[in-house]
Simulated assay, not measured.
Amino acid sequence: MSNGGSAAAGGGAIYGIGIFGAIVYYWQVADGFWEHVGAFFQGLVWPAFMVYEGFQALGA
């Protein structure tokens, strides 16, 4: 019997690629040392920003 572990691993890989892509994006638009440091952390928590902006757009 399978517990679906392989499906979770695939989702984790996609999430990891998204984090890497977000870090690259924020890194490219950063200007200065501290903005580059912030870009790294923004890339790690980009889903929180996305959800926040989505709720703001819905007026929630």
Rank of each mutant, 00 (worst) to 15 (best):
27 W>P: 00
43 G>D: 01
7 A>S: 11
58 L>E: 00
43 G>E: 02
55 F>A: 03
30 A>N: 02
4 G>I: 05
9 A>P: 01
56 Q>C: 00
18 G>P: 00
56 Q>I: 03
58 L>A: 11
37 V>T: 13
52 Y>C: 09
12 G>Y: 07
39 A>W: 01
48 A>E: 06
13 A>H: 02
45 V>F: 15
53 E>T: 10
58 L>F: 11
57 A>H: 04
56 Q>S: 05
59 G>M: 03
51 V>N: 02
17 I>E: 00
10 G>Y: 00
34 W>L: 12
52 Y>T: 14
56 Q>M: 06
42 Q>S: 13
21 G>R: 05
32 G>M: 08
22 A>I: 01
53 E>M: 12
53 E>Y: 14
52 Y>I: 15
57 A>E: 05
37 V>Q: 11
57 A>I: 03
50 M>A: 15
3 N>Q: 09
44 L>H: 00
53 E>R: 14
42 Q>T: 06
56 Q>G: 02
8 A>Q: 10
36 H>I: 09
46 W>E: 03
59 G>R: 03
15 Y>M: 11
23 I>Y: 01
37 V>F: 13
19 I>N: 00
20 F>N: 04
5 G>M: 02
53 E>W: 14
24 V>G: 05
32 G>N: 08
23 I>T: 05
39 A>K: 01
25 Y>N: 04
10 G>Q: 02
60 A>F: 07
9 A>F: 11
49 F>K: 13
39 A>L: 06
26 Y>Q: 10
9 A>I: 12
28 Q>W: 05
50 M>Q: 06
48 A>C: 07
3 N>F: 12
4 G>H: 08
31 D>V: 12
25 Y>K: 08
21 G>M: 09
5 G>V: 02
31 D>I: 08
6 S>E: 10
12 G>Q: 10
5 G>A: 07
28 Q>L: 12
51 V>M: 12
15 Y>G: 03
37 V>W: 12
43 G>A: 01
53 E>F: 15
21 G>D: 04
58 L>M: 14
46 W>P: 01
22 A>N: 00
51 V>A: 15
30 A>Q: 01
1 M>P: 07
33 F>N: 02
51 V>Q: 06
55 F>E: 03
60 A>H: 01
36 H>Y: 10
13 A>D: 02
30 A>W: 02
4 G>C: 07
40 F>W: 12
4 G>L: 07
3 N>G: 11
9 A>V: 11
9 A>L: 15
51 V>T: 14
29 V>T: 15
16 G>L: 13
43 G>N: 01
58 L>C: 04
42 Q>N: 15
45 V>A: 06
18 G>L: 01
21 G>Q: 06
48 A>Y: 11
39 A>G: 14
7 A>F: 07
1 M>N: 10
57 A>R: 11
47 P>F: 08
26 Y>R: 10
12 G>M: 13
16 G>Y: 06
18 G>M: 03
25 Y>H: 10
53 E>L: 14
8 A>I: 14
8 A>E: 09
59 G>L: 02
31 D>Q: 15
44 L>T: 03
37 V>D: 09
